[in-house]
């Protein structure tokens, strides 16, 4: 019984939240890594692309709610997501046209593009604040729980409760669908294959008649769609704040680099590595271990390894370890 209680507690406070957070990070890191693979720079504006797409989705959600449209028990935001994706893709394509294309034509060093993307980041952030303001917005509606903690307790007779929030379940399902679709696209379709070819060897790809501007455009489209999806899922799970997405930038970069930047599988694995490490180190494990370990060696106290203030330090520490020992990442991403 103790072991069951311990496992339930671990699942409730560590495994399920870390899965959801990991899926959100993985979607974000996929966007960063795709941009890196095709356009060959680290896009600092990715966090604020998420913020902008999410802001549009929130506005569309309000519109739908005002019109009385609902898909309860699912949150209305899912219905509004395509609008957000449309807004974000329009924005990034416009940006590419007005900003990035100039540097691409010049074959500027990647670091220039990084600086430019920082400028774009601030413009996006300003736009986000313009369309939705600076306040925190809660836009999740529909059923709150898929598995109610209290009902679970009554049903199982355990001391510990297990709750599965709707937003968590949606995050996992949506992330899975999106990832499967993305890999099918990259591996099976002509366009996806041309993207991979372009990423592997730009000159050869050009020689074989691949249109670079088309590849770049599709990359931006996918990255913006992924960013908006990740942003909306994160916003449903927590709440929408225009500035939190800037803070997600560090874990997302860390995830992409841990997996091997430029490698989509790596981005997904990296997202989960970062999320699980963060949640495990910040969650007080004392309670779980008291259930799991036999009497006599069970620990006292909270056993919280790091205070929550240092969440970001976890991604940073992992990043440093990877840079020191395996700069190409777990899955051998691109190196240059």
């Amino acid at each position: 019984m103790d072991i069951l209680n311990g496992l339930v507690m671990l699942a409730n406070f560590v495994l399920i939240p870390a899965m959801a957070y990991g899926a959100q990070l993985a979607l974000g890191a996929l966007g960063v890594t795709l941009i890196y693979a095709i356009l060959r720079f680290s896009n600092f504006a990715h966090g604020d692309t998420m913020a902008f797409g999410t802001a549009i989705t929130v506005l569309a959600t309000w519109g739908l709610q005002a019109a009385g449209v609902s898909i309860a028990p699912l949150p209305t935001a899912l219905l509004a997501l395509p609008v957000g994706i449309f807004g974000a893709t329009a924005l990034v394509l416009l940006t590419d046209r007005a900003v990035y294309r100039f540097y691409r034509a010049q074959r500027a060093k990647p670091i220039y593009l990084v600086i430019v993307s920082m400028g774009v980041m601030f413009v996006y952030n300003g736009l986000t604040r313009f369309v939705i303001g600076v306040d925190s917005q809660n836009f999740a509606d529909g059923e709150r729980f898929l598995i109610e903690p209290r009902q679970f307790k009554a049903w199982s007779g355990l001391d510990q409760a297990l709750g599965l929030r709707t937003s968590t379940a949606i995050t996992l399902v949506v992330a899975l669908v999106v990832m499967v679709a993305l890999f099918r696209f990259l591996n099976r379709t002509r366009t996806g294959k041309s993207m991979r070819a372009f990423s592997d060897n730009e000159d050869l790809a050009l020689l074989s008649g691949i249109n670079p501007e088309r590849v770049v455009m599709i990359t931006w489209l996918i990255a913006a769609a992924l960013a908006t999806t990740a942003g909306v899922l994160y916003g449903l799970d927590k709440s929408f704040d225009p500035f939190t997405y800037f803070q997600l930038l560090l874990p997302i970069f860390a995830a992409a680099i841990v997996g091997g930047i430029g490698n989509p599988v790596g981005a997904i694995v990296g997202g989960f590595v970062i999320a699980f490490s963060e949640v495990l180190l910040v969650y007080p494990l004392g309670g779980v271990l008291r259930y799991l370990l036999p009497e006599g060696i069970e620990p006292e106290g909270l056993l919280q390894l790091l205070s929550t203030d240092y969440k970001f330090a976890v991604s940073f520490a992992i990043l440093v370890i990877v840079l020191l020992f395996r700069p190409t990442g777990l899955f051998r991403g691109q190196t240059l």
Binding site: S42, K109, A254
Partner: peptide
Amino acid sequence: SDYLAIATLGIAEI
């Protein structure tokens, strides 16, 4: 070259 940018972003937050 991007890694320095990302690492310094991290150190500032920390």
